[in-house]
């Protein structure tokens, strides 16, 4: 990386394009990916499922962690009920076996949901990099609309293919409403 480019990375976070509709954004995101950019992100007021495919996002770690959390919760719940009923406080309830499996299923189920749900929420926040008190994209004034009605795409200067002038002209070819440089 040249000195100049390095300087750019330090002062410029990226180039941002603003789009009027989700359709434009999805089409643009696909072209950006096909152009070979890796470090870019899209910002929308609500989830757009087509973006996953357009940006080729395949990060399913939250599902995996949730599955693991759920399994651990289920095993934990069942073990807890079995330990309480057979070791800590064995009680003969109507002649049923001490480990009375059907009765333990609700507890097992609830623990599965509880731990699975907590794992999902916490791992989602952590993997998203939250909490995040500062993000450069907010340096662009118009970006407040990203949580209301506008759709944004930002190519980051850290991308290997990033070049200030070429990236601007590339984004212009995608027919955005406006293009802005994002300061760090």
């Amino acid at each position: 990386m040249s000195v100049q480019a390095l300087e750019t990375v330090h002062t410029l976070y990226g180039i941002m394009a603003e789009f009027e509709t989700p359709g434009h954004l999805v089409a643009a995101a696909r072209k950006v990916r096909l152009a070979g950019f890796k470090k870019f992100d899209a910002y929308t007021p609500y989830p757009i499922h087509e973006l996953d495919e357009a940006m080729d996002l395949h990060d399913n770690r939250v599902s995996l962690y949730t599955l693991i959390g759920g399994c651990l919760g289920g095993i934990g719940g069942f073990s807890l009920a079995s330990w309480v009923q057979s070791v800590a406080l064995p009680l003969n309830i109507g002649g049923r076996p001490l480990i009375s499996v059907p009765m333990f299923i609700p507890v097992t189920f609830e623990c599965t949901i509880l731990i699975g749900g907590l794992t999902a929420a916490i791992s989602m926040l952590l993997l998203n990099g939250l909490p995040l008190p500062y993000h450069p994209v907010f340096n662009v004034d118009r970006f407040v609309d990203a949580s209301r009605s506008k759709f944004f795409l930002c190519i980051e200067s850290a991308d290997a293919k990033f070049d200030r002038d070429n990236t601007v002209s590339f984004l212009e070819s995608l027919n955005p409403v406006e293009i802005a440089e994002v300061a760090r």
Partner: peptide, 12 residues
Amino acid sequence: NFSQLLITWSAN
């Protein structure tokens, strides 16, 4: 199915 079993199992 499980609800039916659980109710039957608890009432006995």
